[in-house]
């Protein structure tokens, strides 16, 4: 139904196959590796096909391994009990991707947090302003591997 249709459309529109994602201990999950420019179209497609629950956005910094930033979006279809992971890669210098906050309002806070911690510029996000960290850590992109926390005294 919803997922089968999504699989077909992802193949025809973006030419990506659904891969199994057995690492998810929760339930059956499929992974789509997409280009970062397609994120908005993919999100719209997911929403149309019943993937109405946004779980989380999890960026990983692979720069010590010679790769860039990897973004993982986790979605769930409440009716079908299927999860989908949308994976995309960004370069580490000046990472930019379109925001999906208007398609999935739940992503707004997540994107804001990841902007603050990784320095990913979500284009079109209405309020990319400090959320959790204090002023001294703004712009240091604390979750990147290049940032090493050191013992400090105030």
């Amino acid at each position: 139904m919803g997922f089968e249709r999504l699989k077909k459309l992802m193949k025809t529109y973006f030419g990506v196959e659904a891969q199994e994602y057995p690492q998810n201990a929760v339930t059956k999950t499929y992974l789509f590796q997409i280009q970062p420019v397609h994120i908005r179209e993919v999100a719209k497609l997911l929403k149309e096909n019943g993937f109405n629950f946004f779980h989380t956005l999890s960026p990983v910094d692979y720069s010590p391994k010679g790769r860039g930033l990897e973004l993982n979006y986790f979605f769930e279809s409440i009716e079908e009990k299927i999860w989908v992971v949308i994976r995309t890669e960004l370069p580490l210098d000046n990472p930019e991707i379109d925001s999906i906050h208007d398609i999935y309002p739940a992503a707004e806070a997540c994107e804001r947090e990841e902007w603050e911690k990784f320095g990913i510029n979500f284009k079109g996000h209405p309020r990319l302003k400090p959320l959790l960290l204090d002023d001294t850590l703004q712009g240091k992109w604390v979750q990147r591997k290049a940032y090493v926390p050191e013992p400090h005294r105030d």
């Binding site: 204090d134 926390p149 005294r153």
Partner: peptide, 14 residues
């Protein structure tokens, strides 16, 4: 959280 940069680690001095 001794190595966390968002935590004040010397409260008694302050």
């Amino acid at each position: 959280y001794y190595d966390s940069t968002s935590v004040v680690t010397n409260v008694p001095e302050i």
